[in-house]
């Protein structure tokens, strides 16, 4: 790698690598504190950033807006849940199974849906959430409407469960975050990542350059769904229970989409920015106005999204870029003035 290239990579990766390192030491900082509400929020931010990044692969980079991702999230949750509750084993085999099943379901569902273009694809994915939600509600093997309640087992990584301290969950969420962000960062520099964007920007154009767009979309969907399932598995381990409305719901699907769109879809840091803004907002508004009934958080989400879409469709990342450009322009103008001022 020549120095120029090294600079470019560092310039791009430096900030978020530093950020990731910061996250590692965060739990030791007394300000955050053990078991606090803040710790809970940090865990949710990392989980939803990871989950939205998984969505970002197909929805942001590849431009196929899916409202069906809560299904894959749910399959992962049920995979882990069934391993622990029904089979009495650690969640790991269930997590793996969940990821594979989610990828397979994603491919089977997407095959016909990808024949639809643009909005019709998005609408078709809506219907799928309903179908799975209803299906799981009446499916006795997975607990039906009652869902699955975790037994208390020995805590630790082996069972992926901790009783009193949230630190273990925190580090798991951090690993999840690093896996998804690292993977997407890696994709960005490789052929597949370029093909994803090419398909988004113009499917026929990509095909004219030898890109099998159907294969690209299906692969992106499978990868995205498998990662979603991994996130769902963590979610159930953290909540120690799962039922269909908790995971397979349009609310949940919307969250992944909104977080990514708010932060900046099709960008690496977008899901993190979105989750950092929306998750605390959700948790605090729930804590404050929870008495008003469910959905307060969604109202807040909705308002924010409307503002963003009207003000800056590129999301928070777009706002940051605008500020950067503005500053650069002012610096340039200032310099010019200084140059003119010189005799």
């Amino acid at each position: 790698m020549n120095p120029k290239e090294a600079n470019r990579v560092l310039g791009k990766d430096g900030p978020w690598l530093v950020f990731a390192a910061l996250l590692f030491v965060m739990p030791f900082v007394p300000f955050v504190g053990e078991n606090s509400f803040r710790m809970h929020i940090m865990i949710l931010i990392l989980l939803f950033a990871a989950m939205s990044q998984a969505w970002n692969i197909i929805g942001g980079y590849c431009g196929q807006v899916s409202f069906g991702h809560s299904v894959f999230f749910g399959i992962g949750a049920y995979g882990a849940g069934m391993a622990v509750v029904a089979y009495g084993v650690p969640p790991w085999p269930g997590i793996l199974t969940g990821m594979i099943v989610a990828a397979a379901v994603a491919v089977i569902i997407s095959w016909p849906c990808f024949k639809l273009s643009g909005h019709y694809f998005a609408i078709a994915t809506f219907a799928i959430v309903e179908i799975f939600n209803r299906g799981f509600l009446v499916w006795d093997w997975v607990g039906g409407a009652l869902g699955l309640d975790y037994p208390l087992v020995e805590e630790g990584l082996w069972n992926l469960m901790w009783h009193d301290s949230k630190t273990g969950y925190y580090y798991c969420a951090l690993v999840l975050f690093l896996i998804t962000f690292g993977l997407v960062r890696w994709l960005e520099g490789h052929r597949f990542g370029y093909y994803l964007r090419a398909v988004r920007e113009g499917q026929e154009t990509a095909e004219s350059l030898g890109v099998n767009s159907t294969a690209v979309k299906l692969a992106a969907m499978a990868l995205s769904a498998a990662l979603a399932a991994l996130c769902g598995a963590f979610f159930v381990q953290y909540n120690l229970r799962v039922d269909p409305p908790m995971v397979m719901s349009l609310d949940m699907s919307m969250k992944f989409v909104l977080i990514t769109v708010l932060g900046g879809s099709g960008t690496l840091v977008g899901p993190l920015l979105g989750a950092t803004v929306l998750i605390p907002l959700q948790e605090y508004s729930r804590a404050l106005w929870g008495g008003l009934g469910g959905g307060v958080d969604l109202i807040v989400f909705g308002l924010l999204i409307i503002i963003i879409v009207v003000k800056q469709p590129a999301g928070i990342i777009g706002i940051i870029r605008d500020i950067g450009k503005h500053a650069a322009r002012r610096r340039a103008a200032g310099k010019e003035e200084a140059d003119h001022g010189a005799p």
Binding site: Y194, Y195, R197, A198, E201, G202, L209, G266
Partner: peptide
Amino acid sequence: LKEMTVFDNVLVGAFL
């Protein structure tokens, strides 16, 4: 491919 840079457009071709 509008939102991609000129270089990235050509890179997509080169990846064939």
